[in-house]
């Protein structure tokens, strides 16, 4: 699991790459939370386009970051969930709870 980010104009973009399971969700959680705490963004984009595997731990990760963002008054948006992520979000009905943007403009990568 890799975590890359970009912070500008009060917007934090975080992109995760690899597999989300219980084993590596913890590291992603710690990295993203540290970024939120350090930058106190107005908006958090979580790019999940490069996730090749996701199970219920991914749901926990997403719900947890949504809560964390809310604590900091930041809007939370999932960007381009990969098929592996989508099928899990859909089962949980999370696609209705979280804001999801698909095929967002390349300039915001």
């Amino acid at each position: 699991m890799e975590c890359s980010y970009d912070f500008k104009d009060n917007v934090l973009h975080v992109k995760l790459t690899g597999e989300i399971d219980h084993h590596n969700a913890k590291q992603a959680r710690e990295e993203i939370d540290a970024l939120i705490e350090r930058n106190a963004p107005k908006k958090l984009y979580l790019d999940l386009s490069n996730i090749t595997f996701c199970d219920s731990s991914g749901l926990g990760l997403v719900m947890g970051r949504m809560k964390k963002a809310a604590e900091f008054g930041a809007a939370f948006v999932i960007r381009n969930p990969s098929p592996a992520v989508n099928r899990i979000l859909n089962i949980a009905g999370m696609d209705k709870l979280v804001k999801i943007e698909k095929y967002a403009a390349a300039e915001n990568k």
Binding site: G60, I88, A92
Partner: peptide
């Protein structure tokens, strides 16, 4: 049951069995 978990403190969603079933 969906959303049932005994492990609230560790960000579990309680959707494991539901995912397995589907």
């Amino acid at each position: 049951q969906p959303l049932y978990t005994t492990d609230r403190e560790n960000e579990r969603s309680g959707m494991g069995f539901t995912i397995m079933e589907s």
